[in-house]
Design a protein around this nucleic acid. Structure first.
Length: 556
RNA sequence: AGACCCAUGGUGUAACGGCAGCACAGCGGAUUUUGGUUCCGUUAGUCCAGGUUCGAAUCCUGGUGGGUCUACCA
């Protein structure tokens, strides 16, 4: 394993640590705070941590950093666990909570007080902020900084007992008010919050700060490599200070750049606003970059894992193009989904020389990429629907589809010719009268006819109606949250959702279950939405197909 | 302003002092009963200036540009 190829700088460090003997095994962790839903950025961290554990035959813990009872909730814990499992990772019995360490953390704090390295500060939040100084100016020491160990011990115990008001006192580490690193200027370790904790109940009214919990939690779990995002670089010296003073297991923290995706926002705060202000239907709205949203959208977990793999790990800020994610999704779906025919915007076609009442059952391949997926049949009859965009009255020469007098192949069926265009009083094309060539039947074509285009269709009498939700990017700006003067919600794409109802789908779709994915031939990948009922299927468009014709058209 | 981090095609990521490669995107072509897939080809890059060296994307110095830090959030 140490001779395998490191795939990024973190694996290089790990392999060096293994070689040098700094660590003899690899143990990582994924440490979410249960106050929001996981998004694609978390997926990168999950794949990294679980992936490294797997590669180096180690373990990866799931640990909830639940040190702030005001924001956290069991609902989020469940959602997070569901998403990680869905992504395909297993933490086995290693499900931990920082809140389970509260007693130990308290003892750690007492130890620091006894060493003269922590003190109770009675200053107000405003005073503490004022005394902290600025990056260019050193802070000044609190008047309470040199209390005796005994007094600190007494005060801290009484903080725990609830004798003081919320915000009245904090426990601080005694480090260095002049440090250029703000996190070393006597950081707060404990604050009073008279709020019950979703797991610990009302056992505590003081809660450790993240900075006093995270590193020690890693140490308690013997995490060898603690991978986190760049902004924690400045916290590292503080974690190391705590670990040194407390004489705990020295995990090695390595920072890497978090994932940014174009045309979306990723911060929990902004995602929450999208939900709470009603821009989307919920955390699992298919336009959200959350894992629950992507699941509902129909993105396969394998595609997300592949994506996490391809974006790489480095230390520089990055913005990944949405097209890479879409590529991964299409690649996976192309391999795995059965094709069916669905007409999204129907145009009626009557085949005038096809006997009324006759029905033929055409055999169709389910997936040309995978023969083992077999075939199905689809009814063919005199009246059909085709896609409105597959007919043009004044077609350019490069248009391979149906036009007046032109011919086209109906996929897996016959070649037809358009004889007559029927319009309504507004001049809108409402029906096509065509003739078919009986000897051109798919698979046994003896007609000798050659056509350039093949289009999809459904039999009007047999097709089943459904609702389809077409999604586009949620924002029309590549970096909606990077504008100084403008709120990101100003860049919401007004056309991010279009509902089509009814669309007509071949009858074999009946009985499809929520989550089931298909390629609607020539139209894109779609999956069944949980909003579906036994009477009516609802589909989400997961992704379009690449459309070089649309591109050609647009460039004109 | 200070400390710290970062800088390779449009985007992302390789290179460990020795031919700047890969992927996505773009462009062109072949195949195709999905204008899909597949295949082939192709455009495009080391932030700047010095220094070390036979040789620098890589090491050093200085600049420039970007990011992070000044919550009783995580």
């Amino acid at each position: 394993m140490s001779d395998s190829n490191p795939r990024n700088f973190i694996e290089e460090i790990i392999e060096e640590d293994l070689r040098s003997g700094r660590f003899t095994e690899v143990h990582t962790r994924f440490p979410p705070e249960p106050n929001g839903y996981l998004h694609i950025g978390h997926a990168k961290a999950i794949c990294l941590n679980f992936g490294i554990a797997e590669k180096y035959k180690g373990k990866c813990n799931l640990r909830f950093d639940d040190t702030n009872p005001e924001a956290e909730d069991m609902e989020y814990v469940e959602a997070i666990k569901r998403d990680i499992r869905w992504l395909g990772f297993d933490w086995e019995d290693r499900e931990y909570y920082a809140s389970d360490y509260f007693e130990q953390l308290y003892e750690f704090a007492v130890k620091l007080i006894k060493k003269g390295k922590a003190y109770v500060d009675d200053s107000t939040p405003e005073e503490i902020n004022a005394m902290r100084g600025t990056p260019t100016r050193p802070g000044i020491e609190s008047p309470y900084r040199n209390r005796s160990v005994e007094e600190n011990l007494d005060l801290f115990e009484r903080m725990r007992k609830g004798e003081f008001e919320e915000g009245a006192r904090v426990l601080r580490a005694k480090i260095d008010m002049a440090s250029p690193n703000m996190h070393l200027r006597d950081p707060i370790m404990y604050r009073i919050k008279k709020v019950p904790h979703f797991r610990a109940g009302d056992k505590w009214c003081i809660y450790p700060m993240y900075d006093f919990a995270h590193g020690q939690s890693d140490a308690i779990e013997h995490i060898t490599h603690s991978l986190c995002s760049l902004e924690f670089r400045h916290h590292r010296p503080l974690y190391e200070w705590f670990i040194r003073e407390l004489e705990l297991f020295p995990s090695r923290q390595i920072e890497f750049a978090r994932l940014n995706l174009s045309y979306t926002v990723m911060s929990k705060r902004r995602l929450k606003r999208l939900v709470e202000e009603g821009y989307v239907s919920g955390w699992d709205d298919p336009r959200m970059p959350t894992l629950s949203g992507m699941r509902r959208r129909g993105y396969p977990p394998a595609a997300i894992r592949d994506f996490a793999d391809r974006v790489g790990i480095a230390r520089r800020d990055n913005v990944i193009e949405l097209s890479l994610l879409e590529f991964c999704v299409r690649e996976e779906l192309n391999r795995t989904t059965p094709r069916i025919m669905a007409v999204l915007r129907p145009l009626k076609v009557v085949i005038t020389n096809y006997p009324e009442g006759q029905v033929e059952h055409m055999e169709i391949i389910n997936n040309p990429e995978d023969e083992s997926m077999g075939t199905r049949t689809m009814p063919f009859s005199r009246e059909l629907y085709i896609e409105q965009t597959d007919f043009m009255e004044d077609a350019p020469k490069k248009f391979f589809r149906l036009k007046p007098g032109g011919m086209v192949r109906l996929k897996s069926a016959y070649i037809i010719r358009c004889d007559e265009v029927i319009k309504d009083e507004n001049g809108k094309v409402v029906e096509l009268r065509c003739t078919y060539f009986p000897e051109s039947r798919s698979g046994q074509d003896t007609s000798g006819l050659k056509v350039k285009g093949t289009i999809h269709w459904v039999s009007a009498a047999h097709a089943v109606p459904a609702e389809v939700r077409l999604y586009d990017r949620l924002f029309s700006d590549p970096a909606p949250d990077q504008h100084e003067e403008r709120d990101f919600t100003e860049f919401i794409n007004p056309d991010s959702l279009e509902v089509l109802d009814p669309v007509w789908i071949e009858p074999s779709v009946q009985g499809a279950q929520p989550g089931q994915a298909f390629q609607f031939l020539r139209m894109g990948y779609f999956c069944v939405d949980p909003d579906s009922t036994p009477d009516k299927l609802v589909f989400n468009r997961t992704a379009t197909l690449k459309d070089t014709w649309a591109k050609v058209n647009k460039s004109k």
